[in-house]
Amino acid sequence: MSDTLYIDRLRKTYGTLRALDDVTFSVAPGEIFGFVGSNGAGKSTTMRIILGVLAADSGQVRLGEKPIDFDRRRRIGYMPEERGLYPKMKVGDQLTYLARLHGMSRADAEASARTWTDRLEVGTRYDDNVADLSLGNQQRVQLAAALVHDPAVLVLDEPFSGLDPVAVDVMSDVLKDKAAQGVPILFSSHQLELVERLCDRVGIISRGAMTALGSVDELRTRDGNVLEVAGPDPSYGWADALPGVLAAEYTPEVTRLRVSPDVDDQAVLTAALAHGPVHRFAAAPPTLTELFRELV
């Protein structure tokens, strides 16, 4: 079982620009953590500090209870947003070389390179130069480079960028398998539907500060639950004074109600039926994409 990855009160400034402002979260063993934000929000800076590529002005990154040092950093599998592969080097030679840098024997490194290229469906390109691969296949090899040394932690910056749906499914299965083995996984992505589907918890960062943190369900209901009612004439304003209704939005097609967690939904349904037939009555919390637009 791997240790928990702790990111504790990270701060980083560039002149007058505060890139990170007390960024704090953790990724538990077996957890897939989605790290989302707009371009320039601080995601890559956080990841580079975890890897030691950048130094924080203050704060700490720990693996378990100990700060990450050189030896512990070798246990991390990292996939940068910018492809970091040698374009004129063969796929297999490159993965073997990277695995050996992490302390694997040549035999183990070659076996692992074969395993991961086959698993990520680029095994037929094992003896090709990286530059001769499509961008999608280069992305698969980049993920193989993060996995080839059997890391205890995965930190992946936009791993699904540029992938077709089949490749997305392959990578998703790999991440779920690694999480099932107890590996903490931190990844960033702009594909919020994918984050919503894959992740146990999500952190939203904006202008260097964490603005939301929790499970997808917790985030989607953080400002109250949402009920959608199709049927009553919205001109009545029938829900405005109901107990537990925090806000009401009326359109010709549907009434959307933001309600408190303890609202009596049967009382809401009864009030709706008093104004006419109800064709649909359902909970409809915002998607992660809608929430992201509200927060960022």
Rank of each mutant, 00 (worst) to 15 (best):
D3Q: 15
L5V: 03
L5Q: 01
Y6A: 05
D8F: 01
L20N: 00
L20E: 00
D21T: 07
D22R: 08
D22H: 05
S26P: 10
V27P: 02
V27T: 04
V27E: 03
A28D: 07
P29D: 09
G30W: 07
E31L: 02
E31A: 01
G34D: 07
V36Q: 01
V36S: 01
N39F: 06
N39V: 04
G40Y: 06
G40P: 07
A41W: 00
K43R: 00
T46D: 02
L54M: 13
A56W: 00
A56K: 05
A56V: 02
G59K: 00
R62S: 11
G64V: 11
K66R: 15
K66M: 13
F70Y: 15
I76M: 05
M79Q: 14
E82H: 15
L85N: 06
P87W: 08
K88G: 12
K88Y: 15
V91I: 06
Q94C: 07
Q94D: 09
T96L: 02
T96I: 10
Y97K: 11
R100E: 11
R100D: 06
L101R: 10
G103P: 04
A109P: 00
A111S: 12
A111K: 11
S112I: 07
T115E: 15
D118P: 08
R119N: 10
L120W: 03
V122L: 10
G123W: 02
D128F: 11
D128T: 02
V130W: 08
A131C: 12
S134G: 07
L135H: 14
L135N: 14
N137M: 15
R140N: 08
L143K: 11
L143Y: 08
V148F: 08
D150Q: 14
D150P: 06
V153N: 11
V153R: 10
V155E: 03
L156G: 04
L156N: 01
P159L: 01
F160D: 00
F160N: 07
V166I: 14
M171F: 15
S172R: 13
D173W: 09
D173P: 06
L175F: 09
K176L: 13
A180C: 09
G182D: 06
G182M: 07
G182F: 05
G182L: 03
P184Q: 05
F187E: 04
L192W: 03
L192T: 05
L194E: 06
D200R: 00
R201Y: 07
V202H: 00
I204W: 04
A209Y: 01
A209R: 14
M210R: 00
T211I: 15
A212N: 02
V216F: 02
R220A: 13
R222W: 09
N225K: 14
G231A: 08
P234R: 08
Y236K: 14
A239D: 00
P243L: 03
L246N: 12
A248Y: 09
V259D: 02
D262Q: 07
V263G: 08
Q266Y: 10
L269R: 01
T270C: 10
A271Y: 08
A272W: 00
H275S: 10
G276D: 07
P277A: 15
H279V: 13
F281Y: 14
A284S: 15
P285F: 05
P286M: 13
T287R: 05
L288K: 02
T289N: 15
T289A: 15
E290T: 10
L291S: 05
L291F: 00
L295V: 11
